[in-house]
Amino acid sequence: MTTKPLKLRELAKGEDRFAYGHRMCAGCGAPIVVKQVLMATDYPIIASNATGCLEVSSCIQEYTAWKIPWIHSAFENAAATISGVEAMYRSLVKQGKIDDKQVKFIAFGGDGGTYDIGFQSLSGAMERGHDMMYICYDNGAYMNTGIQRSSATPFGANTTTCPAGDVIPGKLQQRKDLTRIMAAHDIPYVAQASPGNWMDLMKKVQKAFEIKGPKFMNIIAPCNRGWRSRTDDAITLAKLAVNTCYWPLYEIENGVTKITVKPKEKKPLTEFLKPQGRFKHMFAPKNKWMLEQAQGYVDAQWERLQKEAAAGEAEKTPEE
């Protein structure tokens, strides 16, 4: 199957595979992520979903927003579920009971269902080498149950289980870098994307579908309820996350790192933090150290990523 051209006007003529009438909050980033992922390809897709905002709001009792075969079983096993579906599909094709329609398999999970609760099943599915893609939409906390901290919650954020008060000013730990952890599984393709850079996101999805084996994509999905921002700034924040290098866009293909979108000018992290109420306390004079620490962490991560990308670049050009 040929990859379809990514022209907005051509894409707009196509049919959405994620329907309206879903009950995600107004201005949620997750449906934008799902719609862009499903739009990127014409392959038939079967998806599983970890418990989370996306799962509970897209499939409520007898209504479903999915126009593709979709399965939810529990919180911790989206990857195990889809790997079972994939193995069954392969077996049936091999037995000649069904035709191979080049079906692609995706597991969707939030950061809670991916970084924390679903991590063991995700790691296992990647190790077993199933031909599947895992997509994590990362909104940085358990938003569905009322904004509890997860290991994806950034440093300093105010959540209901790490509230910012006089003694403890929000979350004191840095977030877990899951994209790198998945890359450490030595799978063929790992990428990080943002719905604000739709072209980059869809290109990565297209690329991943042409690769056989386990793939992982981590996509930022702004949540105005949990981030305490406005309902209309999901895309603006997704772009700011990229331009401040809080959420760099890169891919690791067969161990080679490549930065796919380099911000023209690296903005200070405060531009990303300021519009979000969950970081409000960090702007108090006594918490200045938090802003410095957060910026320091982002700078160090960006520095390391650039070094890795430079090494990847050097690997590609053969030495004379």
Partner: peptide, 30 residues
């Protein structure tokens, strides 16, 4: 159309946008 979380921007057969689909638009303002 690309950024609407509720698929509420109507597009005609030529790929041009038309008015909103107010049956589903949640008014987020993105």
């Amino acid at each position: 159309w690309m950024y609407c979380p509720d698929m509420s921007v109507k597009v005609n057969a030529e790929g041009k946008r038309e008015d909103f689909n107010f049956d589903y638009c949640k008014g987020c303002g993105i």
